[in-house]
């Protein structure tokens, strides 16, 4: 018990040091940008991991929440010239509200039907971004989204934004970790294992699934907010079906039901395309092959898979 706590504290410490060290030592703004993207993707993956890894409910439409966060802040800051700090709570509230309305009927479904339901929702939101030109700017989207500022302090430099994003990641990790270790987290995992039995011990599975769906959407909304103010322009293409699938892939590749796995998956899937530019025409082929190979060799995901190999070589299980 205490060794567990120690390990947890140690991993937070290492995480902090790594973030601070990266922020201080890296001067190349390209690398800082890539790291910032990893951070944004990590928030997305963390949120989806709560839903998929812990509660066992798939969502193939998470890019919609990501996009809603980004578009809300873009519209409020560019169109109405409001402060981003006012836009943030609005974005979160809107995303949560949409998640509630969509989740209410959708989360009654299960398996592929749930997957398809969420996918359909994502598609529809994407089409709204693309076609409702008067509000969303249509296919060209929004440009000139202002950088974030806090009083006189500006987050416009790559380094400051890197810190901002990774602080958000850390907050998200702590938030998720605390939930997982609690009564609520256990109830979530119980839904994953057997929804039937979960109801029988008194868990209101419908409400709980809805709540975790809203939480996961809220995190995606925050990621969208950070994305919009980072790249300063958005267009519908960033929030389409492929992106939803990519977020799912991050969670599964990293290892479901593992917080560090979500980070690992987000890092890998952000870095991979950067590395694969070298393959030019073969880029897609290699990308697809890597995805397949990782899943074939380590079907439990990277974290679980590597841990399993380690444990198998070190100790024998209680049978």
């Amino acid at each position: 018990m205490s060794s567990k706590l120690l390990r947890k504290t140690a991993s937070y410490g290492i995480f902090w040091i790594a973030v601070a060290a990266a922020g201080m030592s890296i001067d190349n703004s390209y690398y800082l940008q890539v790291l910032t993207f990893i951070g944004i993707h990590s928030i997305l993956a963390l949120g989806l991991n709560m839903l998929m890894g812990y509660a066992g409910q798939i969502s193939l439409g998470h890019a919609a929440f990501y996009g809603l966060g980004a578009y809300t802040t873009a519209i409020m800051t560019v169109h109405y010239d409001l402060s981003p700090w006012l836009a943030l709570p609005c974005a979160i509230c809107l995303v949560i509200l949409v998640a509630f309305i969509v989740g209410l009927p959708t989360l009654k479904l299960s398996g592929y039907y749930l997957g398809m339901g969420t996918l359909g929702f994502g598609m529809i939101v994407h089409i709204i971004f693309r076609e409702w030109t008067s509000v969303t700017g249509g296919a060209s989207g929004y440009v000139g989204i202002p950088p974030l500022e806090l009083g006189a302090f500006s987050f416009s430099s790559s380094r400051n934004y890197f810190y901002l994003v990774w602080c958000t990641v850390l907050i998200s990790i702590v938030l998720c970790q605390r939930l997982i270790d609690s009564r609520i987290g256990r109830a979530l995992r119980s839904i994953h294992d057997s929804e039937h039995a979960s109801k029988a011990v008194g868990v209101n599975t419908r409400n709980l699934k809805l709540q975790v769906f809203m939480l996961s959407a809220a995190l995606a909304g925050v990621a969208g907010f950070l994305y919009a103010h980072f790249v300063s322009f958005i267009s519908p293409g960033t929030f389409d079906f492929i992106v939803s699938i990519r977020i799912v892939t991050m969670v599964v590749i990293g290892g479901m039901a593992s917080i560090w796995g979500a980070l690992l998956g987000a890092s890998l899937l952000t870095l991979l395309p950067e590395w694969l530019h070298a393959f030019s025409d073969f880029e897609m082929i290699v990308y697809g092959l890597i995805l397949m190979l990782v899943m074939i060799i380590l079907p439990q995901g990277l974290t679980r898979g590597i841990l399993d190999i380690y444990e198998r070589s070190h100790k024998k299980y209680f049978k």
Partner: peptide, 16 residues
């Protein structure tokens, strides 16, 4: 879900 991701990988591969 693992099989789904494999088929997603395959779809990218075939498109490539």
């Amino acid at each position: 879900i693992v099989l789904v991701i494999i088929t997603v990988g395959a779809s990218i591969f075939f498109r490539g």
